[in-house]
Amino acid sequence: MSFITLEELEMTYGSNGTSATALRGVSVAIARGEYAVITGESGAGKSTLLCILGGLQLPTGGRITIDGVDLSTLRADALADFRGKTIGFVFQAYHLLPYLTARENVMVPMAPEKGSAAGKWARADALLASVGLAGKEERLPSQLSGGECQRVAIARALVHDPPILLADEPTGNLDSGTGDQILDLFARLHGQGKTILVVTHNRANVERGTRSIHLRDGRVDEDRFLAARPAGQAGRGIPPERRT
């Protein structure tokens, strides 16, 4: 059984004759532990797909299932809980809260939770150390480089040890050297068993993944495996309209 299943996803925005269709019958099955790179030109529907994959919005048609849970059956708060525990987000612009230190930014997802401040503090410091930011816990985002900010964002995404990491153009604001370091970090997390989904328009990033999904005009234009799939995962992709 696939870890993430998208079946005939449709996404249409607007109404009363001014609608725009972002996704047209997208069907993809992603196995646990895959590193899928979703590419496409602007307007291809990749951002919409990422939002749906992240449980940030529900499709207007079709079905999305993650780890056996049909997201359309979850109410808003249950979806928020699911998102918090299952999915970690990494954004192109990092989206760190500028008035919080690196440590505090990592602790943000834990803010609504009960638990000792010391425990949360220790967890944040451990995560920052794991992404190579030991000693920079007290710095504000404005005192960190772009690569360091993205590392803080990755640490924040890992707070609840989610099985899925979703990244939107994670190297888009970084120079190539720093971008490579971030991709190395993703590779390491992939090696630890995380399912990584990266949306990018930079096809050079594709080689870092195990699978490449290319979107065009809201449809899967290309879906190919670049490396051996994780052991024991059949992960049959639902055939797209056109596959190379």
Partner: peptide, 19 residues
């Protein structure tokens, strides 16, 4: 709006935003 969106994305419930 964006900050609230980030908080929602990282798992804040609506009640937590209100709070």
């Amino acid at each position: 709006t964006r900050e609230i969106g980030i908080l929602r994305a990282v798992g804040f419930r609506r009640r937590a935003i209100r709070s």
